[in-house]
Design a protein around this nucleic acid. Sequence first.
DNA 1: CCATATCGTGACGGTACTTCATCATGTACC
DNA 2: GGTACATGATGAAGTACCGTCACGATATGG
Lengths: 160, 160
Amino acid sequence: MKYRHDMGDDERYAGGLDRILELVVLLNDDMTKSLAAQGLSVSRMTLLWTLRSLGPSPQRALAEALRVTPRAITGLVDGLVAGGLVTREPHPADRRATLVTCTERGTALLDETAGQQREFGRQLFAHMPVARFDALVAGLDDVLATLHGLGLVHQPGVTE
Amino acid sequence: MKYRHDMGDDERYAGGLDRILELVVLLNDDMTKSLAAQGLSVSRMTLLWTLRSLGPSPQRALAEALRVTPRAITGLVDGLVAGGLVTREPHPADRRATLVTCTERGTALLDETAGQQREFGRQLFAHMPVARFDALVAGLDDVLATLHGLGLVHQPGVTE
DNA sequence: CCATATCGTGACGGTACTTCATCATGTACC
DNA sequence: GGTACATGATGAAGTACCGTCACGATATGG
């Protein structure tokens, strides 16, 4: 039986959320800066990354994948083309559309970034006791599942 | 002794980092949208939030706190003034400077946002077993400490 | 063959951030 | 007291991202 609350549940939750939000701000910032060092932006990298998993795609498909308007894709692709990371090819079946395709430089850059992430993961977690790491991942999975449940997430294929 | 790795450490770390990054992207996005619903942007909200903890401040101080150029502050303050959330007052001691001050509308909006965060924290964590929640927070603290150690973080007062 | 939908993009507006130049003011030093 | 330099804020111009609206080119169904 408690005679006195050291901290109400709401306070505890707030503390947890604060930590998560600090992480969000910090890593978002770091992501932006790291990519800038490679001459990329988060948006362009997202597009490139999506492109690899989709394969050569018309811009319309990319717009849906990134959940932005087709107009935004035009601009992003422009930038990536200028950087030699993707090309615009004619769509073989639909002359209205263009197929955006990753170049070798594009995939090389993608691989390089993946390597950097690996290294970053090591720096973040290598010193942690296994139990703590596993508990962290379990907690994160829980939170992510909750977010999905709250409808905060956009799974491909789910019409809103 | 292990005869076979189910998963190398690097793979485990990568999985952990993936979850964190998914969270970063998701919450960053949600933050942006929630604030947009209140007619604010993340930058403006950050400024407002900083202003509350600093008290009335010259724009220069805000520039350092947000780690952007003074010129960027001019624009953000312009927007907040237009929204009636802050005012520009003359600095009593330095006629070059202006003191940015939070209005009542500003603090009201800040309080409202804090309430929404509380509610969000409840939605995220209320269903979690206490042990899992605590372990998550411990893991997050560990990660945050590591990030600080990596010099990824800008504590006020630390000259780089 | 024609109406309608779709693909991509030009034009335009909004936000955020930068650098550089400028003006007003503060400050230090002779 | 006056001159030189530092500092606060902002105008101008440039980059990047995103949105809406309009439009031309093409596809497609009746």
